[in-house]
């Protein structure tokens, strides 16, 4: 299963299982080889992601990659492949690192609250003990590729460029309602709209119009 250090950097997306094992090796044995492989694979993606996401300059991007990867090392003992896959876990750490960094730039009480507190993602091993893992990653992966272009475009702007629904609407020159409905359709299509309200497209929140 394990690849040698040389080829591991070229691992493909759907071989995510290997990365779970790598993180477990880091967590259990402080395995530097596994960490180096993980670094080789993820850090170029992280760098590009952080730069595109807005607010982070290319000069700052490596600082953030560094911060993210250090957290990966330190948090590895709490990683649980049954709760999240490696890429989801690393994405979340990078997202939180970016949020904290942006807040620090704005001097908004950086020391008071960290993104992982706000998202309730402290290193508690089972933050949601009742969480039933009903999601199927592979399924999501496939569905993502099958989305109509206009829906995929909206999601990509949100994920890659950190845009809000309103900012996507402004960028594409569309009414906010259109953007919202594309998001809803995309989530339904990927079977993420677990609630009947999502499925039927009924608006929520009482007087929401």
């Amino acid at each position: 299963m394990m690849r040698s250090n040389g080829t591991v950097g070229r691992c493909l997306v759907n071989e995510g299982t290997n990365w779970n094992t790598m993180i477990e090796r880091i967590g259990q044995n402080q395995d530097r080889e596994a960490f180096s492989a993980l670094f080789a694979h993820f850090s170029p993606f992280l760098k590009a992601f952080l730069i595109k996401s807005g607010g982070v300059t290319p000069e700052n991007a490596e600082e953030l990659v560094q911060e993210t990867m250090i957290k990966v090392w330190r948090k590895a003992p709490t990683f649980s492949a049954s709760q999240a896959s490696a890429s989801t876990w690393i994405y979340t750490i990078a997202r939180n690192t970016r949020i904290d960094w942006l807040r620090k730039q704005n001097r908004q009480n950086p020391d008071e609250l960290h993104a992982e507190d706000v998202y309730d993602e402290r290193e508690d091993p089972t933050p949601y003990s009742s969480l039933v893992q009903i999601r199927n990653k592979k399924h999501i992966n496939e569905q993502l590729g099958k989305l109509p272009d206009e829906q995929a475009e909206v999601l990509k702007l949100m994920y890659f460029q950190g845009k809000s629904g309103q900012q996507v609407a402004d960028t594409l020159g569309l009414p906010l309602g259109t953007v919202k409905s594309r998001i809803r359709l995309a989530l339904n299509k990927m079977k993420l709209g677990l609630m009947p309200a999502y499925k039927e497209g009924i608006t929520q929140g009482g007087s929401y119009t």
């Binding site: 997306v13 490596e62 994920y159």
Partner: peptide
Amino acid sequence: EECRNTTESLKDIGGDLLQSGESIEVS
């Protein structure tokens, strides 16, 4: 719990897109 599951899936999408996006060599 439903929205918790939705959130986890939405983060899965983030993880997938992260690896399917551009990559830039680090120093």
